[in-house]
Design a protein around this nucleic acid. Sequence first.
DNA 1: CGTCTAATTAGAAGTGTATCTAATTAGATC
DNA 2: GATCTAATTAGATACACTTCTAATTAGACG
Lengths: 193, 193
Amino acid sequence: MSEQDLTTLVQFFKALANESRLKLVGALAQQERSVEELASILELKEPTVSHHLSKLKELQLVHMRAEGNTHYYYLDLDALQAMQKATLTATEITPPVQEDVWETKVLHSFVENDIIKEISASRKKRRIILKWLVQKFELERLYPEQELNQIIKPIHSDTATLRRELVGYNMMKRENSIYQRVPESDWRMDSNH
Amino acid sequence: MSEQDLTTLVQFFKALANESRLKLVGALAQQERSVEELASILELKEPTVSHHLSKLKELQLVHMRAEGNTHYYYLDLDALQAMQKATLTATEITPPVQEDVWETKVLHSFVENDIIKEISASRKKRRIILKWLVQKFELERLYPEQELNQIIKPIHSDTATLRRELVGYNMMKRENSIYQRVPESDWRMDSNH
DNA sequence: CGTCTAATTAGAAGTGTATCTAATTAGATC
DNA sequence: GATCTAATTAGATACACTTCTAATTAGACG
């Protein structure tokens, strides 16, 4: 959903998010009517009705036909139904991209120039940082603790914590002080974290 | 459209008539998300997001699932689509009755106890009053001007004007000072008035 | 049990909206 | 052209809404 579509949708909802305007649409659905007539039906003053009609007209939901002094307003059924269809598809299909705005944002705030500035105390954020960190290791290869530390060290001084957390989040497994990266599919849905 | 339906519809439109809330719906259409995550995506503070979510929750458009401290919100797609269908039928079928609120209102303000208080200067209103007045006469019968006056007199003193107007609006026709009522189908669509 | 995290609630500031009265415009009528 | 009618525009008031910061609640963890 583009920025343009979004504001158009908001405008549409705003136009109908009002009892008086909704009643206007209802009254005009039956037949065209003059401003005076609408004011009488809704029990509002004419300037008020005029104001609401101008809002509906901006969005092309109604049009006006002048006959002498009298202004007859009528509904644009096509425009109305087009907008309604737009609301359907907008919420069904929904924005396609942007998926990982959140992760990107978290990473930017905790990692800079390949250096972890701070290990977030929040589990969800820590998980995102570790997910980034574990990409530094190859999948098939075995890493002795010594080597693991050497890789982590320039990224963050607290190698012990990161080592422990990587294992804790099941992103790496350890056997006799030899570490190996775990495929993402094995920890992705890990609901413990 | 009942009063209840109308306010429900207004509530629904109001709920979506806001950029932030529309974005929330968009973000939740993909998957459930925590408040913190949503705040990050929309670039708003958490209390603000919380506030918007509570509005959506009131209308049952979203629901919440707590997991520890974290509150995951997710969309109620059924509720959403149900509301969208409701908007379609509401504007297509439209209010059935109420048709002549306007005429009734005009009559009430100019006629009281079978007496015309004032002959409106407005053409449209005058037409409504005359439409009411002409019902006092039978269709087949012929009325000499004398008798016509006697019938009109107790309703309004200015018999001359009303007589002239009835003929002018083609609601009665005159021949040699004998008057006869014209069937409504013959003057109903008379666009001169 | 005290501390930390995630969320909500309370309260405040600024903006927007609905409605009204009064003034203005524009068409029709005498 | 003066007057009347229908509508719009201008300006004012009152209320609602969005967003923020600060304070509070409730769950998790050492």
